[in-house]
Design a binder for these strands. Structure first.
Lengths: 171, 171
DNA sequence: ACGCCAGTTGAGACTGAGTCGCAATCGCAT
DNA sequence: ATGCGATTGCGACTCAGTCTCAACTGGCGT
């Protein structure tokens, strides 16, 4: 459970470019690996403020940048505004199903999609460096609630959606 | 070429909910369908400011909301900040390849990916309402330039990337 | 163990994108 | 032409994230 592995990666990352493992960076790292898989910058700020020590917002963001750069943490654009961060297990990769109702984030991995992506890239001579793939909608838990609540517009949208399974191409 | 079709959709959309086709909405619509496939809100603001009439930022955003809601225009989160809009040809749908170097946006459509998505949703009992799928990297045109410029770090990243075609899972 | 100094921090000003409230104005059905 | 609900522009506001800079500190060299 102890994130020895990640800490070492981070340590080495810092060392390699003459950066320091300050108490703030350490505290942030610990908080992050204490429990949370997904989190937002301000969430961390509050959490650290109340629990441990006060760390300025600037430092949170700066440290998060380092963690992202070192590959330990991923930065995702989920939802309407701002970023969301998530721990990255080395080598692993996944995409997201995001519930518009409860905000739940479901991770999924579909190798076949990945290889089709590769194919698309080849087709266009495109060298992919990263990708972002999210589906937004209603999760299993929220579906009963939603369909019963909004019988009108939403229901027709929902039924149309279930026929084609994608209706409002957000991207 | 004249976007009669879209104008009518918009007109009907407004009518249906007792909204008005004001000169500002009309100007925005025209500008949008004059040429541009992809654009940003501020781009429109500037364009309209200089060319035709002055339209406030608030109105730009408000009108864009209507256009998105009416299904004529799509709102995409591309790049680091803010939104990007694009005209939507009815029924069509596509995803994006975005070049980190030149900003070029390549549209692609891969039916097989779409149906795999549907499958994933089914697996999780998830009702998809929209999706967003983007690959970031280097486009064909920029590849020679980039690899020659940055022989070191970038090159190793690039070669690693070409082996697996995705390296830094951004989402 | 100590000192040094590049790297780091916090505070708060700043930015950019987008939203809001409200008084003045306009579209359009009658 | 009239009336009134919809719409506009303005500017103030929010929110997330960045920047500046003086004060502070980790950890290498001795």
């Amino acid at each position: 459970m102890k994130p020895h592995r990640e800490l070492n990666i981070f340590r080495k990352y810092l060392e390699k470019r003459g950066l320091k493992l300050t108490s703030e960076r350490r505290a942030l790292f610990d908080e992050l690996f204490a429990r949370h898989e997904h989190f937002e910058a301000d969430e961390l700020l509050v959490r650290l403020r109340t629990k441990h020590k006060k760390i300025s917002r600037a430092t949170i963001y700066r440290t998060l940048d380092l963690l992202v750069d070192s590959g330990i943490v991923g930065r995702v654009r989920i939802g309407e505004s701002g970023y969301r961060y998530e721990r990255l297990r080395a080598g692993e990769h996944h995409d997201h199903l995001i519930c518009n109702e409860c905000g739940r984030v479901i991770e999924f991995f579909e190798p076949a999609i990945e290889s089709l992506q590769d194919e698309v890239c080849e087709r266009y001579g495109f060298l992919a460096l990263s990708h972002s793939h999210q589906l937004r909608g209603i999760c299993r838990q929220c579906r009963p609630r939603v369909t019963s609540r909004e019988a009108g517009v939403a229901a027709s949208a929902a039924s149309a959606a279930s026929a084609r399974l994608r209706i409002l191409p957000t991207a």
